[in-house]
Write a protein that binds this DNA or RNA. Structure first.
Length: 428
RNA sequence: GCGGUCGUGGCGAAGUGGUUAACGCACCGGAUUGUGGCUCCGGCAUCCGUGGGUUCGAUCCCCACCGAUCGCCCCA
């Protein structure tokens, strides 16, 4: 490869041979969304930078170092979306969906996200996510439904090595109290913590708990747990969520150190991870939580909301790691083999007519010999091969060969379209 | 931003400081003058990431760069 006309770092082409898996996954997920009564929303690929600064939070890694931010010709600062929730929240406020008769507003999206990171297995600069947002309900049953939906998506696709981890970050009051307790707890050890954590301690002490470098520090084990700081309301909310999960038979693990990287979460936070082998360092398949303050932050009415984001590249990886077969639905119905100039013309017309009648057909365009054309038909896994040669043209016939059995018969060309459409589409 | 590994034909993969750089897969053609999946034969024709350097000579040695990949951080 001489030219450097390659796809930018961290991006990939999804080629025809791979698209099948993507379409299958998308179809299955949409089917689940339909059953759960969620509606699709499509928002812009880029937003005003401020949408993410305010929505995602200034102290997050995403905003601090991972955004694709640029200035447009009008001098506006725009950013390619690094996650899905902020844009949806913005759209919800701007379009006054809080006034919709149907509440809560239950949305899903498929969207590509952009994060400036060093690529590695399961981590791309452009990535695809499926996501859910439910706005307008503070019912813990909604939290459970959202989690249930995510788990159902994975299970309907055949994944089994799943682990659901949940936590509660509590409401504003609980978080504040816990935050102060964390600062009090870690400050005496500040000098012993890693550089990142020293900064985190100032900005967002919750995330010190997330640190992998300092995970063995003695102060970690004794750090105050958020669960001990939940006020009555937060505590009972979390209890209800767990009860609903229990009621649906969804297994979970409570992990008080689960914090999530985004600032906007409160109450329920969750992650779904894969135990499957071949995953490298990446284990998180999906993550989400409640963000009751964001809509207000965007100038809307006080609106409780919850959602999650699910990485589709990682989902595909998980399917592969677990050996899930993707059904092949687009085999070719017919392949027309033509030999000779006259036959070629008849073939073109036949291909056109069959296609017009709903049959999937292809033919040779490489000037291959008959044998080569048959090989191509075999490669394409065509069900039938229709042969037009000199004999057929002379006798106004056509040879129909069923590839699976090798049986073939010579039929009059006259009603061949009807005959074949009946044969191929009769059952549909 | 930091660290490890790697970079040979469409793909996979050997290899050597020095005439024509293995092999496998795939593809095309022939054996079978109009028939696929098996077998055999042939073809696929200067190409060894880029730019420098060492050398009489480098794909193989040195340097830089670019790219890929895996990991750290963090996450999807």
């Amino acid at each position: 490869m001489v030219l450097s006309m390659n796809a930018p770092r961290g991006t990939v082409d999804i080629l025809p041979k791979d698209v099948k898996a993507w379409q299958y996954v998308e179809e299955q997920i949409k089917e689940v969304c339909k059953r759960y009564h969620y509606k699709e929303i499509r928002t812009p690929v880029f937003e005003h930078t401020e949408v993410f600064q305010r929505g995602v939070g200034d102290t997050t890694d995403i905003v601090q170092k991972e955004m694709y931010t640029f200035e447009d010709r009008g001098g506006r600062s725009l950013t390619l979306r690094p996650e899905g929730t902020a844009g949806v929240a913005r759209a919800y406020v701007q379009n006054k969906l809080y006034g919709d008769v149907n509440q809560p507003v239950k949305l899903y999206y498929f969207a590509e996200m952009f994060r400036y990171e060093r690529p590695q297995k399961g981590r791309m600069r452009q990535l695809n996510q499926f996501g859910i947002e439910v706005l307008g309900s503070a019912d813990p049953a909604v939290d459970a439904e959202v989690i249930d939906l995510a788990m159902t998506v994975y299970q309907s696709l055949g994944l089994t090595s799943l682990k659901l981890v949940i936590n509660s970050l509590g409401d504003k009051e609980s978080r504040e109290n816990h935050r102060q307790a964390l600062i009090d707890h870690f400050t005496p050890h500040k000098e012993e913590l890693c550089a990142d954590c020293q900064v985190r301690l100032e900005q967002n002490p919750l995330r010190v708990l997330d640190c992998k470098k300092d995970r063995d520090h003695p102060a970690m084990g004794t750090a105050p747990s958020i669960l001990d700081f939940l006020n009555e309301e937060s505590k009972s909310y979390f209890e209800e969520v767990k009860e609903y999960l229990d009621a649906m038979g969804i297994a979970y693990v409570v992990d008080p150190t689960l914090v999530r990287g985004l600032d906007y979460y409160n109450h329920t936070a969750f992650e779904i991870m894969s135990d499957a082998k071949g995953f490298g360092a990446i284990t998180t398949l999906a993550g989400g939580g409640r963000y009751n303050g964001m809509i207000e932050e965007f100038g809307g009415p006080t609106t409780p909301a919850i959602g999650f984001g699910m990485g589709l590249e990682r989902l595909l990886m998980a399917l592969e790691a677990e050996g899930v077969e993707i059904p092949d639905t687009d085999k070719l119905d017919c392949y027309v083999v033509a030999v000779g100039k006259e036959a070629e013309q008849a073939a073109v017309r036949l291909v056109h007519d069959l296609r017009a009648n709903g049959v999937g057909v292809d033919k040779d365009y490489q000037q291959r010999k008959m044998k080569g054309q048959l090989k191509a038909a075999d490669r394409y896994e065509a069900k039938y091969v229709l042969i037009l040669g000199e004999d057929e043209v002379r006798n106004n016939t056509i040879t129909v060969k069923e590839m699976a059995t090798g049986e073939q018969q010579v039929l009059p060309i006259e009603n061949i379209v009807d005959t074949l459409t009946g044969k191929l589409l009769g059952g549909k």
